[in-house]
Write a protein that binds this DNA or RNA. Structure first.
Length: 283
DNA sequence: TGCCCCCTGCAG
DNA sequence: CTGCAGGGGGCA
């Protein structure tokens, strides 16, 4: 579920809470969700947190705990206050652990971090920083869209390897750009005023340019709004993320376009819900 | 490059 | 009951 902006928000919130703490205990409730040896991170201090694409890392001394939340992953930290980040489900604000709880970390100050994942697509993985484990996980990923090295040219070149694909489908390919998911791919196409079905090979230079701008705008707005959710995305101070209230097309089918009033359409592209304004977005 | 699959739960 | 859900790996 979480895409780049949500993972970024989780990182920013969680790091204020756990950097400097020591991991005292790891309880693996669902073995399938945990790759590596829990013992390898016991008694280690959290040095920093970082994010690459949709993967979140808690870095310890020479070793890191990586998280991929996939569709329904959540991270809930309970300490002097409660931090909830990830997929909104009704039980996420209830008692913990719950039936979606897969892994529990306990820190030296008694606070706990719960990795919950209803559908069990997500994972927690221990990797040695120095080793190729990290590289092999990351080497296929495309550029970080909010970094300086993500240029128009890079995006264009990467996209052009998928000429026959619909733009929106190509944007979801993590080797093209990393971190975009279904919400922001839809929003990016809207920002760029390009029909999501348009084939990459038919894009003009101007359209590549506006797509580049659109991708970054959609992601930045997502972060600015504290991530997206339908229900309870909560930052460390307990504020909700309201991005979907601001989303211009995602989940807005049957509603009027905020720009022109045309009814937003929903179709399927490669099996994923695809939303667009047939008036604002050009074929 | 496209399809199926991994899972669970909710809305229609 | 069927279809759908913010992801992506493995397979032909």
């Amino acid at each position: 579920m979480p895409e780049l902006p949500e993972v970024e928000i989780i990182k920013l919130g969680l790091q204020r809470k756990i950097v400097g703490l020591k991991i005292k205990k790891i309880e693996v409730i669902t073995p399938k969700s945990f790759i590596g040896k829990p013992k390898d991170i016991e008694d280690k201090k959290v040095i920093k947190m970082w994010r690459r694409a949709k993967i979140l890392a808690i870095e310890l001394n020479g070793i890191a705990v990586l998280f991929h939340l996939k569709m329904t992953g959540q991270l809930v930290w309970v300490g002097d206050e409660k931090f909830i980040g990830g997929h909104p489900t009704p039980d996420m604000i209830g008692e913990l652990p719950n039936k979606s709880t897969r892994v529990i970390f306990t820190f030296n100050n008694g606070s706990k971090l719960y990795f919950n994942d209803q559908r069990r697509f997500g994972w927690v993985r221990i990797v040695n920083i120095e080793q190729s484990a990290v590289n092999s996980l990351f080497k296929k990923l495309g550029p970080e869209p909010l970094e300086k090295d993500f240029t128009r040219e890079i995006l264009k070149n990467k996209l052009l390897k998928h000429k026959s694909q619909a733009v929106k489908v190509a944007l979801l390919d993590q080797t093209v750009v990393s971190g975009l998911g279904n919400i922001y791919a839809n929003e990016a196409c809207f920002e760029a005023k390009i029909d999501p079905r348009k084939k990459v090979g038919e894009l003009s230079d101007n359209e590549f340019k506006s797509l580049h701008r659109g991708v970054r705008k959609a992601l930045r707005e997502g972060i600015a709004h504290g991530g997206s959710t339908r229900a309870h995305f909560v930052d460390p101070e307990g504020h909700k993320g309201y991005f979907l209230d601001y989303a211009k097309v995602y989940g807005k089918d049957k509603y009027p376009c905020k720009i022109c009033g045309e009814i937003i359409q929903k179709i399927q592209l490669k099996g994923r819900g695809t939303y667009f304004c047939s008036s604002c977005q050009k074929k």
